[in-house]
């Protein structure tokens, strides 16, 4: 396959450029449109002939977002909540996934089925009972409520992905470590874990994205605007009479920056991680 590519004809070359361009336009155009709108005023956003770049660049949308809506607070809240939830979910998930991948115990199958089931239930169904539980625990209107909810909802997916990664690590590696006298825990920590660091990274990124963009629970568990997260803050821009398209677009762009940075910085780990685990599914 590599050889055939190396001896590519000019035609193939051209086609490839076309495919790449179409793909880039298709994926990026809506994002660009969001960016474009974030610098326009309302009249220009809805002008008869759409403008491909703002004729009158305005920063007002961004100003509204920060000065009137305190968007920076929402960004910080989201960052804190998503980071903590991700870290814990991935940590707990890794421990559980290792045991599920390597060991046989009573209820193993049941646990696996349960994990799948919690993922299949629509989150809407859990709102009332979870709200009641959080209320009884005195956790409503705290970040902890959201952190707990996000751990619970991301754990199944995390365990699931991570089982795949652990399955990829050959048994023999562990066996030889054991023969050398390592305890099971030492084997886990020193032999297995280092090998799946990329997998953990990939799982963490997926979890983070989900927690970062979650809306339903963020809306319901938090009553104080001081504690609200990015998606909730953005929803406040759908007002009774108008959707504030400008600030909404600006908020979308700003909200994406932290994740884009995260993904970009961790890209190699991320891809390597997926390479490790996805094959076994």
């Amino acid at each position: 396959m590599k050889k055939s590519i190396q001896s590519k004809s000019k035609m193939k070359h051209v086609i490839r450029y076309i495919v790449v361009s179409i793909l880039l336009i298709w994926s990026l155009f809506p994002v660009y449109w969001m960016l474009n709108n974030s610098f326009k005023n309302r009249i220009e956003q809805f002008s008869d002939t759409p403008t491909f770049y703002p004729n009158q660049v305005t920063l007002e949308n961004y100003m509204t977002l920060f000065l009137e809506l305190g968007f920076h607070k929402a960004l910080l809240n989201s960052l804190l909540i998503a980071t903590v939830a991700t870290t814990i979910a991935v940590f707990i998930g890794a421990l559980a996934a290792y045991s599920l991948s390597r060991y046989r115990f009573i209820g193993r199958k049941g646990l696996l089925v349960w994990i799948l089931l919690t993922r299949i239930f629509p989150p809407v169904t859990f709102v009332i009972p979870l709200y009641e539980m959080m209320g009884n625990a005195g956790l409503l209107n705290t970040r902890i409520a959201l952190i707990l909810a996000y751990i619970a909802f991301n754990l199944p997916f995390a365990i699931w992905l991570l089982i795949g990664f652990f399955n990829e690590v050959p048994f023999e590696l562990e066996e030889s470590a054991m023969i050398d006298g390592a305890s099971p825990f030492q084997t886990f920590r020193k032999v297995v874990l280092p090998l799946i660091i990329p997998g953990i990274g990939a799982t963490a990124i997926f979890t983070f994205i989900t927690a970062w963009n979650e809306f339903l629970y963020a809306m319901i568990f938090i009553q104080s605007p001081e504690l609200s997260t990015v998606p909730v803050a953005l929803s406040g821009l759908i007002t009774e009479y108008l959707v504030l398209w400008g600030p909404m677009s600006a908020g979308g762009i700003l909200s994406a920056i932290p994740i884009v940075l995260l993904v970009y910085l961790m890209q190699d780990t991320f891809i390597k991680g997926l390479t490790l685990g996805a094959v076994k599914g």
Binding site: L23, P30, G252, Y264
Partner: peptide, 26 residues
């Protein structure tokens, strides 16, 4: 295989990362 992978990989991820509410509204 071949060229353009890294570029595509970064660009194509963006739609997944944006807040759903803003995506839908855009």
């Amino acid at each position: 295989s071949g060229k353009g992978l890294k570029l595509i990989r970064t660009a194509i991820l963006l739609p997944m990362l944006l807040p759903p509410i803003t995506v839908a509204l855009t």
